[in-house]
Nucleic acid binder design. Structure first.
Length: 228
DNA sequence: TAAGCCTGAATTTTGTCTCA
DNA sequence: TGAGACAAAATTCAGGCTTA
């Protein structure tokens, strides 16, 4: 497989130069991250953050708080997060019930002490697959992986960490394996790298990329293919 | 033989494009 | 500018294979 021309940290530095230092993620702990996944149906993180903060401030983010809040109140809180708040509420309720069944303390302990077991548990939650579980463990600072989302995967694939535009579980694992030797155990760096890759995939390295604005273009397979 | 893993297809949701 | 069609992303699910 083709390898990227430069170490990953060089690309991340270029993205930090372009976008600046990303803001600290808002959720803390595994259940807040599950809530974060479900509170909004829009790709815009600012909008998602707004709904999450309101929910946290007005009712709290424990499974019990979510289950005891009247449905109309919850729908009202979730409405700014995009279409179909009722479906999102149903998923939140399902997640809260499962979290109570498993035990929040047990999940927290496993996240801290056994990432493999924690991944198995997290994948029982609807909407959380392998990438989602890895992301939660990264943000909880227990698994030193990059856990790129679809946007990040696209960027990394085009740089040479996998096939350009590949997706699905196989591509996720392939890129994860290719990245592993380049990753430090510095969680601040990993989290920022995750955020910057996501931002870059959303803004510039889209399905139809804006290569003229991209600081990674000289090393990008997609750009070089197009400019030949 | 049961549990776990892998792969690819299916499904759902969201984003983008085109056209009136 | 809005609606509909289409494409892409992310996850789920089913079936086959491997291993203990």
């Amino acid at each position: 497989m083709r390898r990227p021309a430069l170490p990953l940290r060089v690309y991340i530095d270029r993205l930090r130069g372009l976008y600046g230092r990303p803001k600290r993620p808002i959720p803390s702990g595994p259940f807040e991250w599950i809530i974060w996944e479900h509170v909004a149906a829009v790709p815009d993180d600012e909008q998602r953050a707004l709904v999450f903060r309101t929910l946290r401030q007005k009712i709290g983010t424990t499974p019990q708080a979510i289950l005891r809040t009247p449905k109309p109140k919850m729908i009202e809180l979730l409405a700014p997060g995009g279409p179909n708040p009722g479906a999102r509420l149903a998923r939140l309720h399902e997640a809260a019930e499962l979290m109570i069944e498993i035990g929040l303390a047990r999940v927290r302990t496993l996240v801290r002490e056994s990432p493999v077991e924690a991944t198995k548990l997290l994948k029982r939650f609807k909407g959380i697959g392998e990438p989602g579980a890895d992301r939660i463990l990264l943000f909880c600072r227990t698994q030193a992986a990059l856990a790129p989302d679809a946007n990040g995967l696209r960027v990394l694939g085009r740089l040479g960490y996998g096939k350009p535009n590949a997706n699905g579980p196989a591509a996720y694992r392939q890129i994860g394996d290719a990245l592993a030797p380049d990753l430090p155990r510095d969680y601040n760096w990993l989290i920022q790298a995750h955020q910057l890759l996501r931002r870059h995939g959303q803004d510039i390295c889209r399905a139809t990329p804006r290569c003229e604005a991209c600081p990674l273009a000289p090393d990008c397979a997609w750009f070089r293919r197009g400019s030949r």
